[in-house]
Computed example of a mutant assay.
Amino acid sequence: MKNCIYLFLLSSLFMVTSCDTKGEDIYSGYISFSTSFIYPTDAHDNYEVLFNGNVISKSGNALVARDNPEGTLEVYKKGSDTPEFSKKITITSGEVVRLIKLDGRSIDIYDENSYDSFSLNVIYQAGKESEYKASFNENQISNGINYLKKEDEHAGILKIYKEGEEVAVFSQDVAIAANGIVNIMQLSESEFLLVPEDNEPIPDSERYTKLRFFYTSDALPGVERIKIIIYEWTNFAELGSVEIKVGQLSPYQTIDWDVVGSGGGLCQDIIDLTDGEPGVKILDSAINMDAFININRGEFKFATTRLGAGGIFIKSIPALSTPW
C-alpha cells in the first residue's frame, strides 16, 4: 500500500514538472500578436485575417515562433479565395497590427504618419440615422472618426444621400483639417446645415448677444443671397447687418441690449442680393409690422436663428445656441 502511495506521489510530481516545463517552452518559444481594423471598426465581420495561412480570430491573439517571426499577413473577403491584401511582415512581441480599409482604396496596414483623421458629426433628427449615408469626394464616410491619406485632397464636396436615392439631399464644399470636426445638423427630411467650428469670443456680459442667421430655399424661393439689417423696433435704430447665402450661416452680429432698452425688441429688413448690390428690399419692417426676431436680453450668449417663410419671423435654434 505504501509503495502504491509512493508511486502515485512520484507520478504526480513528474506530471507537474512536465507541465511547468512545457509552459516555459511555449512562453520562450513563441511570441503573441493580434490584428484589428482601425477603420471601419466592424470590418472583421466581413473579412478574415490570416498569418502564414492560419486564421487569426476576431478577438484572440495569435502565436508565432520567436526564432522565426517573419510571415505573410493576408486579408480575405469572407467567401473569397483571393486575398485583398497580402504582405510579408515581421512580428514583434505583443504587437497589434492595425488594418484600415477606406472606401475606394485597398486594405492597408495603418501608419499614423500616412493618414489624417477627422470627425464627422451629423446631428440627425431622432430615429433618422439609419436612413442616410454620407460621402466625401464620392467616397463613403460615417459618423465618428474617419481617415484620409495625407496625399489625398482634403478639400472637396461632402454629400448626404437618403438610402436608395441617387441625388444628394445635401452637397457642400468643405475643407477638412487634420483632427478637425465637421458638424452638420438635419433640419428636415431634405435639409441639412453645415455648422463650422466656432472660435467666436464669448460676450462680456448678458448685456450682449452674438446673433447669426441662416435660411433655406423654401423660406425665400429663388433668393440666393441676402442682407439682413437689424433694428430696435421702437425707434428703428439700426443695430447692425449681415450678409448670408442660402443654406449657409451668416457671420455673428453683436447686439447691445442697452441700446435696445427696456421693453424693446428686434426686427429686420431683408434685401435680396441675388443679382448683386444694391439689391431689392423684399421685407420692410417699417411696413410689415409682423417682422420680428424672437430673441430676448439675457437669453443667449450665442444665438443661431432661422428665417421663417418670407423671412418675416426669425426664431432661435436651441441646439445651435448657447444660453447664459
Rank of each mutant, 00 (worst) to 15 (best):
residue 157 I to H: 04
residue 241 S to N: 15
residue 216 T to W: 00
residue 186 Q to Y: 12
residue 181 I to L: 14
residue 162 K to I: 11
residue 212 R to F: 00
residue 132 Y to S: 01
residue 235 N to W: 04
residue 142 S to D: 12
residue 130 S to E: 10
residue 174 V to C: 07
residue 130 S to P: 03
residue 165 E to W: 06
residue 146 N to K: 05
residue 167 V to D: 15
residue 144 G to M: 10
residue 135 S to Y: 11
residue 243 E to M: 10
residue 146 N to Q: 01
residue 145 I to S: 13
residue 169 V to P: 06
residue 209 T to A: 04
residue 179 N to P: 03
residue 241 S to F: 10
residue 190 S to T: 13
residue 231 Y to M: 04
residue 232 E to P: 03
residue 219 A to F: 00
residue 230 I to N: 01
residue 153 E to Y: 09
residue 152 D to S: 12
residue 179 N to R: 11
residue 215 Y to S: 00
residue 240 G to E: 04
residue 224 E to G: 10
residue 143 N to Y: 12
residue 188 S to A: 14
residue 134 A to I: 06
residue 170 F to Q: 07
residue 131 E to T: 13
residue 226 I to C: 05
residue 159 K to L: 05
residue 180 G to L: 06
residue 183 N to Q: 13
residue 201 P to Q: 04
residue 201 P to R: 03
residue 176 I to D: 07
residue 171 S to H: 00
residue 175 A to T: 15
residue 239 L to Q: 09
residue 211 L to V: 01
residue 227 K to L: 12
residue 204 D to V: 08
residue 176 I to C: 06
residue 168 A to H: 07
residue 206 E to N: 12
residue 228 I to T: 11
residue 211 L to Q: 02
residue 167 V to L: 15
residue 142 S to V: 15
residue 162 K to N: 09
residue 221 P to T: 01
residue 173 D to G: 07
residue 175 A to I: 14
residue 131 E to L: 14
residue 232 E to N: 15
residue 143 N to G: 13
residue 242 V to F: 01
residue 235 N to Q: 09
residue 197 E to C: 05
residue 144 G to N: 09
residue 179 N to V: 05
residue 197 E to I: 02
residue 238 E to C: 03
residue 150 K to V: 07
residue 163 E to G: 05
residue 170 F to T: 02
residue 189 E to N: 10
residue 138 E to G: 08
residue 128 K to E: 15
residue 129 E to R: 11
residue 164 G to F: 04
residue 237 A to H: 14
residue 169 V to F: 11
residue 177 A to M: 11
residue 233 W to Q: 13
residue 195 V to K: 02
residue 180 G to Y: 07
residue 227 K to I: 05
residue 203 P to M: 00
residue 213 F to I: 03
residue 156 G to Y: 01
residue 224 E to N: 15
residue 192 F to T: 01
residue 210 K to N: 08
residue 139 N to T: 09
residue 144 G to H: 08
residue 169 V to K: 09
residue 233 W to S: 13
residue 157 I to Q: 11
residue 160 I to G: 04
residue 170 F to D: 06
residue 202 I to Q: 11
residue 149 K to F: 14
residue 209 T to W: 08
residue 206 E to I: 13
residue 139 N to H: 12
residue 237 A to M: 15
residue 158 L to H: 02
residue 161 Y to I: 03
residue 199 N to C: 10
residue 178 A to N: 13
residue 175 A to H: 11
residue 193 L to P: 02
residue 180 G to N: 04
residue 153 E to W: 02
residue 138 E to M: 14
residue 172 Q to L: 08
residue 157 I to S: 12
residue 198 D to Q: 08
residue 233 W to K: 13
residue 171 S to T: 02
residue 178 A to C: 04
residue 172 Q to R: 07
residue 152 D to F: 04
residue 174 V to Y: 05
residue 133 K to H: 13
residue 186 Q to V: 11
residue 211 L to T: 02
residue 193 L to E: 04
residue 182 V to Q: 08
residue 155 A to K: 14
residue 222 G to A: 06
residue 219 A to T: 04
residue 162 K to M: 13
residue 178 A to T: 07
residue 200 E to W: 09
residue 205 S to M: 11
residue 190 S to V: 09
residue 143 N to L: 11
residue 151 E to P: 09
residue 145 I to C: 08
residue 183 N to L: 08
residue 237 A to S: 15
residue 216 T to L: 03
residue 169 V to M: 10
residue 150 K to I: 10
residue 156 G to H: 01
residue 224 E to T: 06
residue 242 V to S: 09
residue 131 E to H: 13
residue 204 D to Q: 09
residue 183 N to I: 06
